[in-house]
Design a protein around this nucleic acid. Structure first.
Lengths: 232, 232
DNA sequence: GCAAAAGTGTTACAATTACACCCATGC
DNA sequence: GCATGGGTGTAATTGTAACACTTTTGC
């Protein structure tokens, strides 16, 4: 280490805001603290940045003790918190990541870890409550202009199932009709050709769909001020 | 400091990507390194995070030696770089900020510091070249869906002047006609009521405009998947 | 037949681009 | 008058929301 009074060093934490839609509601993964400070409050999973890893690798490593990492369908950096008083034990800097788990998985969680609805968070430790808020904002924005939906959805799904996922994540109503068309037009979604059997009460069988690509892409790049159309 | 083998600590840097439109081109402020490593290469202004400051305060402090801080019209956190090899002298973590200076100012810069066009960067030190790339992406996106333009523009300006600023920052043509209307409709821009005298070659006098608010606001919140219209 | 659920057709609306045209000034 | 630059009118285009309607199944 090469710190000095002019170059102080700080323990650095990697934190993860892991989100999943469960039973039609958006949930975040938290663990319950057993020690001081914030005993009994709920915290984001995370831990120290080790000597030879990047922040991204660190989050993945920390999460490995909570969920199998391959269940994470997406991971991106969110923001870095540096308030000197954010941890009463001493100064730390923390970089938060946003992680997403598709709705069809139900990872086995450690004893002290549980999913909490994002619209009814329990008492949270440190600045973790406001970090969850940032993550929600990021997810909601990206659902509108990228294909992140793939990271919340199972490999294949009906349009109605996908709609429920979007509604849970966005927090407002979306109609299956329009969602279907918007995503088809953009080339984000495609039909698999298969059908699901109708439910017990009858009804038309639903077509199965999948996301065309399962890596993050910006599908609606310019809100406005688009570049001029290339003259044909 | 409370580090340990299990909780290693690292010097943390705050870096600033300060952008300004100068003579119709977008420029970034860089300083020329005199010492190893990367002697002679150009680097982003920045420096160590001190014991009692937040990252935001740190960037502001570092920049104070380059420009007067009140000349910065906007400052926001960009991203954190943590590659263990990013500094050959030893591990550091760096958090980059995006700073903007309005076009009418011409801050006095230190001897070793200069503006460089973003589309023709000189040899850059560390990972600073790619950080500049991130900053450009962020600025361009936000010009489309927020009112950040205020941070690049002087207090008052003609629509033609504003257009030149947008063109420089976005890197593609924008017509004054449409820019004017888009920003007016959104309530981002307003006429001051004053006029500028026409140039030496004549021409209709231009109306002066200003941004209605000079703090960041999201003016075009949803690219798509808007919430349902409230039934009247 | 009837209810249920999925999906399509169609209309209405809003925002934006493109472009022709009109306006105000200096020489 | 006429060149120059600023600004407005207007049509064409695009993307989206809303909603009625048709399709396909179970009972």
């Amino acid at each position: 280490m090469w710190s000095s009074p002019e170059r102080p060093a700080y323990p650095h934490q990697a934190l993860a805001v892991v989100l999943q839609v469960r039973a039609g509601r958006l949930h975040v993964m938290l663990w319950r603290r057993g020690n001081e400070p914030f005993t009994g409050a709920w915290a984001l999973p995370g831990g120290p940045l080790l000597a030879d890893e990047t922040l991204g690798a660190s989050v993945a490593r920390q999460l490995a003790s909570k969920v199998e990492v391959q269940q994470l369908s997406h991971l991106e950096q969110l923001e870095t918190r540096s308030d000197p008083g954010r941890d009463p034990r001493g100064r730390t800097v923390a970089t938060a990541y946003l992680g997403l788990v598709p709705a069809h998985l139900d990872p086995v969680l450690p004893e002290d870890t549980a999913w909490h609805p994002t619209d009814a968070l329990p008492e949270t430790a440190f600045d973790h409550g406001s970090i969850v808020g940032s993550a929600l904002g990021r997810l909601r924005a990206k659902l509108s202009y990228t294909n992140v939906g793939f990271a919340l959805a199972p490999p294949t799904f009906t349009v109605a199932e996908l709609r429920d996922i979007y509604v849970a994540a966005l927090g407002y109503e979306v109609t299956a009709t329009n969602l279907h068309r918007v995503l088809l037009r953009r080339g984000v979604l495609e039909a698999t050709g298969e059908m699901t059997p109708p439910g017990r009460a009858g009804g038309r069988p639903a077509a199965l769909h999948r996301f065309v690509t399962r890596t993050l892409e910006v599908t609606d790049p310019f809100a406005v001020l688009r570049p001029p159309s290339t003259p044909r």
